[in-house]
């Protein structure tokens, strides 16, 4: 079989492929399924071996998260929240607990609640709340995702809150690299607010290495971003199949070929819908 014959066999309805391009045969779709599964597992495994080459690109900083959160509050005529080291410590402990216990929720498998972390960090509250996010690439996407969700938005725009803490921590869930963002809100029930603020400044000045880590955020830029590569390969495969389906439909229609198969229009609509869905799918999830 020459190269030309092979191309015809794969892409064009012809005697050699029973008048259906080989790329559209059910066996070919099963091969795509196997390819996607191996490719998905393969790049995840590769990202564990060489994350600096093939990894998750992340650029999330506490400074940007605080700025974006307070910007949203400002747009709703609310006072800005003050970054509180105790709430940041609580957020950091919560993130570490989620990684160590391998869960992604407000409440842990052993009954750990967000309030436990806030209280154990030394912050005594009258109001408190928590927003979670993971797998986002940028700070602005995180805050926008929370603002798109009514319950998370309520937290950000709650007038009772005075203080805020953040933790941006990298780790692994189920062997997969993940960036967790924990946002803790609070209002101290201490009567001596001025003293609390003084303590905050003092603690910031004496920040330990771990606290600096908490404040800084996470910035990673591998040579290849796993998610972008995954999405690009998927879009290319779906796009290729759409082109072959359209080409096949046109040729079959022109040649008036009679065959038993599903209608191309239906497959084009279905695959086209998911091509759009994959294309527009945003990274990240929130809780």
């Amino acid at each position: 079989m020459t190269f030309f014959d092979a191309v015809v066999h794969l892409f064009i309805p012809h005697d050699s492929n029973n008048h259906r391009p080989r790329l559209l045969h059910p066996h070919a779709f099963l091969a795509y399924v196997v390819f996607i599964v191996f490719f998905g597992f393969g790049i995840r495994a590769a990202s564990n071996i060489a994350p600096e080459i093939l990894g998750i690109a992340t650029n999330i900083s506490v400074e940007d998260l605080l700025y974006d959160t307070n910007l949203k509050r400002q747009e709703s005529d609310l006072p800005p929240l003050i970054l509180n080291p105790k709430l940041s410590q609580a957020a950091y402990n919560k993130a570490q607990n989620m990684f160590s216990q391998n869960y992604w929720a407000h409440f842990g498998p052993n009954g750990e609640s967000p309030w436990d972390f806030i209280v154990s960090s030394g912050y005594s509250y009258s109001f408190a709340g928590e927003n979670l996010a993971k797998d986002f690439n940028e700070s602005s996407s995180v805050v926008q995702a929370w603002m798109d969700s009514p319950t998370h938005k309520d937290n950000i725009l709650k007038s009772e809150y005075k203080d805020i803490g953040f933790a941006v921590v990298n780790g692994k869930f189920n062997g997969q690299e993940t960036t967790l963002v924990v946002q803790m809100f609070g209002t101290s029930n201490s009567n001596n607010q001025a003293s609390d603020n003084f303590n905050i400044i003092e603690e910031s000045a004496k920040a330990s290495d771990s606290q600096e880590l908490i404040v800084a955020g996470v910035s990673k830029l591998p040579i290849l971003n796993v998610k972008t590569l995954n999405k690009s390969v998927t879009i290319l495969l779906l796009g290729l199949l759409m082109i072959v389906l359209v080409l096949d439909g046109i040729l079959i229609s022109m040649r008036k070929t009679i065959r038993i198969s599903g209608h191309n229009i239906a497959h084009i609509l279905f695959l086209g819908a998911f091509l759009g869905a994959v294309w527009l799918t945003a990274a990240g999830s929130i809780r």
Binding site: I36, G40, N230, T234, G262, F274
Partner: peptide, 15 residues
């Protein structure tokens, strides 16, 4: 129809 549906489900799982 079934294999095309499975193909899309696997794609969504991967993404």
């Amino acid at each position: 129809f079934a294999v095309i549906a499975v193909f899309v489900i696997i794609i969504l799982w991967n993404v």
